[in-house]
Simulated scan of single mutants.
Amino acid sequence: MTLIRSKRVYGIDVIRSIAISLVVISHCTYLLYADHNTFILSFIRTLGAVGVDLFFVLSGYLIGGLLIKNIEEGKTSFSDLVTFWKRRWLRTLPNYFLVLALNIVLLLILGDALPKNLWLYIPFLQNFINPHPNFFTEAWSLSIEEYAYLILPFLLYLSFFMFKKQHKQLFLKLTLVLIVALFAFKISYYFNANVTSYKEWSSGFRKVVLYRIDAIYFGFLLVYFIKKYETFFMQKKKLFSAIALFVFGATHLLIYYFGLYPQTHLWFYVFLYIPLVLLSCAMLFPYFINLKQNRILENVFYFISTRSYAIYLVNYSLILLSIQRYYKED
């Protein structure tokens, strides 16, 4: 146990703990204040959405780092890719399918109808191009992560096979090309969507794989540049943190001051808002990954961090919604 913990990065545990805390607190507001929508509640719920974006950047940073390590160690064959996928799936899929099964059992016990096309949850296709169904709602972000780890790594290893002498450059080039290519789908959404509310934009854009998969690739770019220019980022970590807070704060002040809503300023929410949030999250990483360890809080952050995935899977659909339903029926 001591050896395992010695290999952990304290700042990463802090980031993961902050992210899951933002998500859970946000979800709790829907239980405690389901029929209210004050400024404070809206802000807390916005931070909950940001918590998921922070998870996306963190996941991309960690998985992108593993891919770079494989490249540096010469592990660039398709068998190495399969090994990479197996390790990833063994860490995520068992818990996912267990919680999926529990959600199904809960629905049957309550006498509710199962959603149509339930089988889509098995290959994570339930929100690939359409809004996520109103069942096991946490799964929307897991679909985005799973396809992010399928698509780019496959193209990367295919490129290794085709261009054997360009391994170090291909990671960056392919990530950038894929981000640009995925932008075309956002353009299509912008010109074809008829959005009437934030909730509609959130379900039809923010939580759809095809439009959000690039969020993980922000983390890929982040780890690439931090590894390549580590000294620069470490020297400027406080400056980057200040810029991150400014960009995040200014973005949301603009939304509040000018009354920017998806139904009136869809271009802002499709092309600018999420990238600015992701950029703000990414610029905090140089500070956190070298954060000085606090012995008093270390165990707290370790406990939350190592259980964050399980907490994310069960906190809303299984726990909070069940509590909410119990009190409504009571």
Rank of each mutant, 00 (worst) to 15 (best):
I4R: 11
R5A: 07
A19N: 07
A19T: 09
V24C: 07
F39E: 13
G51D: 00
F56V: 02
S59T: 13
G65L: 09
L67T: 02
E73Y: 05
K75E: 10
L81E: 04
T92G: 00
L93T: 03
L100T: 02
A101S: 14
L108E: 08
L110C: 00
N117Q: 13
N130F: 08
P131H: 08
H132V: 00
P133M: 06
N134A: 12
E145C: 04
L150P: 07
I151Q: 06
L155D: 06
L158W: 12
F160K: 09
F161S: 14
F171R: 02
L172M: 07
K173R: 15
K173H: 12
K173C: 08
S188Q: 11
Y189F: 15
K199W: 10
E200I: 06
E200W: 03
S202D: 13
R212T: 10
F218N: 09
F220P: 07
F225T: 06
K228P: 05
K228Y: 09
K238C: 04
A242G: 10
A244D: 04
A244H: 03
H252A: 02
L253M: 13
F258R: 11
F258W: 09
Y261M: 11
Q263W: 04
Y273C: 02
L278Y: 06
C281P: 10
N294E: 01
V300M: 12
F301W: 10
S305N: 02
T306D: 15
S308W: 05
Y309V: 06
Y312R: 11
N315V: 04
S317E: 13
R325W: 11
D330L: 15
